[in-house]
Computed example of a mutant assay.
Amino acid sequence: MKQRTLWSATLVAGLVVLAGCGSASDPDSASGGSKGKLVVWDWKSGDATASSYVKKAKADFAQQHPGVTVEFVAQPFEQYYTLLGAAIQAGKGPDVMLFNGGGQIRDRADSLLPLGEYVRDDKKRLAGWEAFTKDGKTYAAPVTLQGHPIYYNKSLYRKAGLDPEQPATSWDEFVADCRTITKATGARCFAQGNK
């Protein structure tokens, strides 16, 4: 498991977390996966836009670890944590996995190996570590931070008699502007793009 831990930390530095629960690709294998193969679960590698990254990650890893292959297993995001929880509980989970920060990883920390010694240098250049930490131990590294930007439609501001160059700077002002925009234009103030 120590060797697998080192491989995993090197594989996609910051992308994934280690699990001490076996290989997802071979249900009959013992805990720790099959020799020479590292199984990675995620919800992104099956996306066409991620293919060049996955290809490069595999190539970089293969160059550093000859004789070890990496298998990415893309799971549907809507079912990801249910499938992962069942696999971990059955002792057939992947060697490496992608996690959202916060409760999803903290709830499974007892099944994971801490990565502190492998990500020590990354702590200086990445933010958001607290979301991947429980009881002072780090179980994953942040890959991306997801914010919630708010865009506004300047033409709606103008139609409502508001100055689009002077948008609200406080929540109360924002709510007041929304009321004005809705009353003047019938437009709703919020929409979610989600892509």
Rank of each mutant, 00 (worst) to 15 (best):
A131I: 00
F77H: 10
G91N: 03
R106N: 11
P114H: 04
L83N: 15
D135A: 12
K123I: 04
E78A: 15
V119A: 06
Y118S: 10
R120W: 02
F77T: 07
P149H: 02
G116Y: 06
D110C: 01
L84F: 12
L98K: 06
Y118T: 10
I105Y: 10
A127Q: 06
L112H: 04
A90W: 05
E130L: 07
T82P: 01
L112E: 03
K123W: 01
A86E: 14
Y139I: 04
G103S: 15
L98G: 01
K137L: 10
L145G: 15
L83A: 14
Y80A: 14
G101F: 08
L115H: 00
G93S: 05
N100H: 06
A141M: 13
Y118K: 09
P114R: 09
V143Y: 09
F132Y: 14
Y81K: 07
G93D: 04
M97W: 04
A131K: 13
K137A: 06
G91D: 06
F132W: 01
Q104P: 06
K134A: 02
L83S: 14
L112N: 02
F99V: 14
S111L: 04
V96Q: 13
L113N: 06
I88D: 00
M97C: 10
D135F: 07
V96H: 12
A86Q: 15
P94E: 12
L84R: 11
W129V: 01
R120N: 11
R106F: 01
P114I: 04
Q146P: 00
Q104F: 10
E117M: 12
G116L: 05
D121G: 03
A140R: 05
L98D: 03
F99N: 14
E117K: 14
P142L: 05
T144V: 08
Y80D: 13
G102T: 08
F132E: 00
L112W: 05
A131T: 04
E78L: 09
